[in-house]
Simulated scan of single mutants.
Amino acid sequence: MHLSIKIQIEGEFTINENLSINIEKRSKSVAIIRENNKLYLIVSKEVIDYNDKMPILNAHYFKPTPKDFFQDLIDIVRYVEAIGSEFLHLHKVFWDEFEIIWTPDVPEEEHIYPVYSYKESLSNHSSPKLISVKTLRHIFDERNKYEVLTVPMSFYRLGNRFFHNMEFKMAFIQHYLMLDYCFSNGQFETKKVIRAFLSNKTLRFGAYRYLQYFLKTANDKDITFYNKQRGIFNQYDSYKKCRKYSSHVDFLLAMLVELRGKVFHASDKTVNYVSDEEFPSLSRIIWGLCSQVTGLLRLELFCIKQDRDKLWTFNENEMLMKE
């Protein structure tokens, strides 16, 4: 049995005939085809043990193929999307809808399952938010105050778009840029940025509010990632001299700054500081923090400093790690 993902692409290029090559020691194939005057990218792999991976359809429910089973095919499309912008003049990959196709290789594999193809979307969008005239009016009535948030909220919007499209590395970068713009005080050196982050009451309170939720309700993968990073950080001599990060708030903010340096700059490109499997956890953590911070930034515009100092206070002893 072969598993394929078929996705529409657009760009300033054309083909005279359908193109197909084998890659990764012929275990996978990549093709570009024309169909109904549209161009499609098809990435395929052979699957030997497919019984528990095939989609299931019965009178009560539909069970799709698990996304993590074809993540390797998605990674290949991501590679073509990035590199193809230069070599193929590729402009767009239609991630909102692509097709999952199972192709029998021998007659014995035919008619085993009722479903051999279906549409899929690479996103985790939540339900649409209902807005009102009152909300729209408020945005423009307070434009003189809100305009200062134009740049950071642009980073936040891009981060959310990448996050919902499951491009977790790009989501992390954009969400971090929002925090950096608002709270780094123009610093670039890691220790100085950490110091700036830890001295900002709004950011610390946002981290506290987020951690109240995260430490009690996060899934096991996210908690495992968080604890792994905490263990790594406490071994660093530079951190022991500066601060042991016994505080969850201090550790969270320091972790994001430190991993920003490793992800952005990649001074040692042979070291995988955050694995592909861990990036969803890192991205969910910073996304949750930024969601809290955006609300506080809006409130901050309408509070005097004395009120903020009273409101942005917390008792970290209230936070408990999930058992």
Rank of each mutant, 00 (worst) to 15 (best):
L282S: 02
K6Q: 13
K6E: 12
L282T: 08
K228M: 13
Q229S: 13
L57H: 12
I100K: 07
R195E: 15
S132F: 13
K6H: 11
K134A: 13
F163I: 06
Y245D: 02
G84Y: 10
S27D: 13
N317G: 04
I5F: 09
G288Y: 12
L211V: 04
T224E: 15
L282E: 07
F302E: 11
F70Q: 02
S247E: 10
G206D: 07
G159A: 10
L320M: 13
K269T: 10
V263H: 01
H138N: 03
M54T: 09
L211F: 04
G231K: 12
E17G: 01
C242Y: 12
I42G: 01
D96M: 06
S275N: 02
P107N: 12
L320E: 12
W102N: 04
N200C: 07
R204H: 05
E278Y: 05
K53Q: 15
P104C: 09
E300S: 11
P55M: 06
P66G: 02
K244P: 02
I32M: 05
I5S: 01
I232R: 14
L122V: 00
V77C: 11
I194A: 03
W312P: 00
L256A: 06
R230V: 03
M255P: 01
F172V: 01
E120M: 09
F168D: 05
T103S: 10
K145N: 04
E142R: 07
E24W: 07
S85K: 13
E108C: 08
F69A: 03
W95H: 08
V77T: 06
R26W: 02
S4L: 10
E108R: 13
Y156E: 09
R298I: 00
P280H: 08
V115L: 11
Y208M: 09
S20Q: 10
H138T: 00
K221G: 06
W102Y: 10
D307M: 02
V106G: 00
E24L: 12
G295K: 09
Y156W: 14
E17I: 02
I21Y: 07
G295E: 09
K221D: 13
S44H: 07
A171D: 03
Y156L: 05
P152E: 02
A218F: 08
V274A: 02
F70W: 09
K241I: 06
L320N: 03
E108G: 02
R308Y: 00
V47G: 01
K129W: 03
V80W: 15
K38D: 04
F205V: 00
E110M: 14
K269Y: 14
D250E: 12
N22Y: 13
I139W: 14
E46A: 03
Q187P: 00
N58V: 00
K45I: 04
T190C: 11
N165Q: 12
T150V: 05
F225E: 07
Q174M: 14
S126Q: 05
F172E: 03
T103P: 06
Q174H: 05
Y50I: 06
S127V: 04
V133N: 11
V148H: 11
N16P: 01
Y118D: 07
Y208N: 01
V115I: 14
K134S: 11
K192Y: 06
A266H: 08
Q8G: 05
K310T: 10
H164V: 05
